[in-house]
Simulated scan of single mutants.
Amino acid sequence: MYDLKDKERIFVFTGPDGSGRKTIAKLVAQTTLQMKGVISYTTRVRRPYEIADQDYYFISEAEFETASNSGEFLESVHINGNSYGIKENDVRKTFAEKGCIYLVLNREGSDIVKDLYGDKVIRLFIYADRDTVLSRQKERGDDSEIINLHLSHYDEDIAYQNKCEHAFENYKLDHTAYEVTNVIEEYLDLKLSEDC
C-alpha cells in the first residue's frame, strides 16, 4: 500500500451516476492547479461518449485479474458484473507530479480508500434528484438497461452523502464547480500554512 506523506491528500468525487461528479472533478482540477486525477481501470465496455485513457483505461477481465493477483490495485470493486480499480503505481506517480490527487469513485470504492487513509481522504458527494439524473443519462446516450441499472441503486447512492465530508447539489455546473473549488482550496491553504 502506498504510504501518503504528511501533506498529501486524496479528494474523492462520488455520488450517483449522472450526477456530474466526473465533469465537476475535471472542471475543478483545471482551476486547482495543485491537483491531478488518477484514472480508473475497468472491464466494462466503453460507452459512445467516453474517451479511452481519459475517462477510463478499458481492459479485459483477464488483464484485470492478472493485475489484481499481482497486487497492483490500491482499490478495486466489482459492480453490475464489471470490475473497476485504481492502480497503486498510478497514485504514486501522480503524487510525484502534484501535491494532491483526485479520484472519481462509487461509494464502495470511496469507502475502501477512506478506510485505507482516514482523514487524508476528503469525500466530495455530488448529487442531483432522480429525474435530473435520469434526464442526464438519457441526454448522454445511455441505453435504457444501463439507466435502469443505475437508478436501481440511486437511493443507496444518495444515502451515502451522510458519510461524506461534503455534499453539493449539482444543477448548474459552473456554480457547483465554484463551490467545490472553494472547499478544496480551504484544505490546500491549510496544508500550505502547515508547511510554513
Rank of each mutant, 00 (worst) to 15 (best):
R47H: 07
H166N: 06
A52L: 01
A25T: 03
A25P: 08
I112V: 15
V180G: 10
I184Y: 08
T43E: 09
V180N: 08
E179P: 01
V183M: 12
T42Q: 04
T42K: 13
K120A: 15
F11L: 10
E108G: 00
E185C: 02
A128D: 14
S83V: 00
I51R: 14
D131F: 09
N89P: 00
T23I: 13
Y2K: 11
V183A: 13
L105A: 14
D143G: 05
F13E: 05
Y154E: 04
D131K: 12
L188P: 07
D3T: 14
E65M: 02
T94F: 00
L149D: 03
N80F: 13
I122G: 05
S83E: 07
F125P: 02
A62Q: 11
I147S: 09
T23Q: 09
L33E: 06
Y41T: 02
D115I: 04
E165T: 02
G118H: 09
I101H: 01
Y41M: 03
H166G: 01
L173S: 02
S76H: 13
D53Q: 12
M35E: 03
I39W: 05
D53S: 13
D119P: 02
R136T: 10
R92Q: 14
D17G: 10
D53I: 04
R44F: 12
Y127E: 15
V104R: 01
R140K: 06
Y171E: 09
E50L: 08
D189C: 11
V183W: 06
H153V: 13
F168M: 05
S76V: 00
D131S: 10
L124Y: 11
N69H: 04
V121C: 14
R47Y: 06
A177L: 10
R123C: 08
K36Q: 06
H150F: 15
T42G: 06
L134A: 08
E139R: 10
D17R: 13
E179L: 15
A177K: 05
R46N: 05
G141E: 07
N148S: 11
G99R: 07
N170T: 05
V183S: 11
D6S: 14
Y171G: 00
R21L: 05
Y160K: 01
A62M: 02
E50Q: 15
R136H: 08
R130Q: 13
L124G: 13
I79V: 14
D53M: 11
Y187E: 10
R123M: 15
G109M: 10
N82K: 07
K22I: 06
V104F: 03
N80R: 06
T94E: 14
D53F: 08
L4P: 02
A67K: 04
V12D: 13
L134V: 00
E65Q: 10
D119L: 02
D155W: 04
I24Y: 02
K7P: 03
L134T: 12
Q54Y: 12
T176H: 12
G141Y: 04
K26T: 03
E169V: 05
G99D: 12
D3W: 07
D115L: 13
A29L: 04
V180W: 04
R9E: 12
D129A: 05
Y160V: 01
G20Y: 03
Q161I: 02
I39R: 06
